[in-house]
Design a protein around this nucleic acid. Sequence first.
DNA 1: TTAACTGCAAAGACTTTGCCAAGTA
DNA 2: TACTTGGCAAAGTCTTTGCAGTTAA
Lengths: 140, 140
Amino acid sequence: MLSKIEAMCLKKGIRFTGSRKIIAQIIIESNDHPDVDVVLQRANKINPKIGIATVYRTLKLFADNDIIAKHDFAGEEKSRYEDVNDDEHHDHLIDIKTGKVVEFYNEEIEHLKEKIAKDLGYNLVDHRLELYASPIKKDD
Amino acid sequence: MLSKIEAMCLKKGIRFTGSRKIIAQIIIESNDHPDVDVVLQRANKINPKIGIATVYRTLKLFADNDIIAKHDFAGEEKSRYEDVNDDEHHDHLIDIKTGKVVEFYNEEIEHLKEKIAKDLGYNLVDHRLELYASPIKKDD
DNA sequence: TTAACTGCAAAGACTTTGCCAAGTA
DNA sequence: TACTTGGCAAAGTCTTTGCAGTTAA
């Protein structure tokens, strides 16, 4: 079965090479929003010859084609990546203690975003909502 | 009369030098969220001897002390800065055509942000909400 | 086969830092 | 005067790119 990423490469006439297959698979299987170095690490477990430039190039290629999403969270130097499903949008809560990312979706906020833009005389094209938070401690 | 930034510096024992005074004034008077180069340009109109390193150092100093806010908007390479008033929070709508920044505040969203974090088991520490939008064209 | 891809190292863009002269309290 | 600042240029990060060998269709 064709992965979504492979299908899109085929469609756009982009070669689905060994490196790309590996990197695509890593993104699909990772749910921790890895950065370039982490992706490289995971890729090198499968093929140690893959270099950092290829990872950068491949992630950019996928991101430019909206197959994956690139995030630049506040306070972090490197970008992080995640798989995207066209039909499902979500925002992020970042645990400032650990860097862990929790995804969430809130219908009300989505509507409000649209409304606010409209009220200001704009058509909403994109948005970014990130919550930076620390876990509530429980002494149970 | 002491500017808010000068007062902050005094309070924190940070020297309020000529360069810092100029840069502080520029941030206070600018409402277009200028980046480092723009701040340098404006500073150099007053004192051509101020260098880019000083602007970077000063903006970082102010930002680290929460006297000004630093923003990294999506799709822009350089950071942009703005004055902050402790008691007044706002989010940003970025005009993707011109880079113009419109500030807005929405009570409902503020509450939702808090609630979402709580529901996920976190205490909200900070957040980032940015709307990227294009102006609604009117043929009037 | 042949145009596209990859690895390596070098180059870029933004930001920070070391050094020493200069300014502030 | 003592200690912090600031200008300049060099160094640091993350990311992109040129080149030549390699590979997928």
